[in-house]
Amino acid sequence: MSKDIKADPAVPADGDPYGERIDEQPHRDATPHAESGLSEGAESVGTAATGGAVSGRSASLWSDAWKELRRNPLFVISALMLLLMVVIAAAPGLFTNQSPRACNLANTVGRPQAGHPFGFDIQGCDYYTLVVYGARTSITIGVLVVGVALLIAIVLGCIAGFYGGFADTLLARAADVWFAIPAILGAIVILSVFNQRGLFQVAFVLIVFYWPVMMRLMRSSVLGTKEVEYVDAARALGASDVRILRRHILPNAIAPVIVYATITVGIVIASEAALSFLGVGLQLPAISWGLMISVSQNRILQDPHLLLFPALFLSITVFSFILLGDALRDALDPKLR
């Protein structure tokens, strides 16, 4: 009796790698929600009714997702928080008329008071102004790192997933090597080589450690998408690889990577703070929440406000990105709809 070789799903064991067997069970009866999409009243022999019946349903996945998102309070809250943070980062002058460099040592570690709601730091600088200006560094690092890493991930992930073969093996192994190194430890090692550590050096190191995860995610998403029949259909029409990737694979494969990237923005911001806290990230006189927390570490008990305010802003930002990513995932996951 055939103990056949179906154990390995990658192998077209029953001789037909396109899974005829699975597809030959069309008449799975209603679990009703699976059916609710097909509400047209007319299978268009007389087509008149086709227009109206489902017009209540919206068009593309993204616009469906947008509808879903707008109804999700978590999304609304996190998006508003992030919008606020981005505005702060882009135009700190709107939120404070003081310069972060205008300090008066007489005010050193002053407590919050009227006109100076967050108090003063050791140098006697207005802490509220510093926190406001710190947003720019955090947001910039987060967006820059994830933006560049995402770009690398999309390009390499598409190549690895679509073409497979040697390029895939090479890229996958390269990513594995990076996985093996704990990000923070690796970052510390690389950063300690630089004698000047500004925003770009820190961003560079974080990019180096964050692209592999996204690349692998992109790769597996492309791998899944390229097996779907519409890709075969496009190929049968004579579409070039570039067209197939751009029109058919990328739009269908990118959603999980976008979700992950959104969450990663928050994590990157936290990582910058962690590196700065450990003394290998940004250096004074740069202004960043991480650096502010780092400087305050010896005075937590005496002057808790030095820790509290930058930590609060940092947490809210990081948390908002993660919430946003979660909301995006819920909205983009077709299985939940």
Binding site: A59, L61, E229, Y230, D232, A233, A236, G238, P251, N252
Partner: peptide, 24 residues
């Protein structure tokens, strides 16, 4: 081969998988 595509076409089994969901 590209020229041949005009002569031989295919209709697939799965009407759900054979159309790109992101295209009208």
């Amino acid at each position: 081969l590209r020229a041949l595509r005009r002569d031989i076409q295919i209709v697939f089994q799965d009407p759900y998988a054979s159309l790109n969901p992101r295209m009208t």
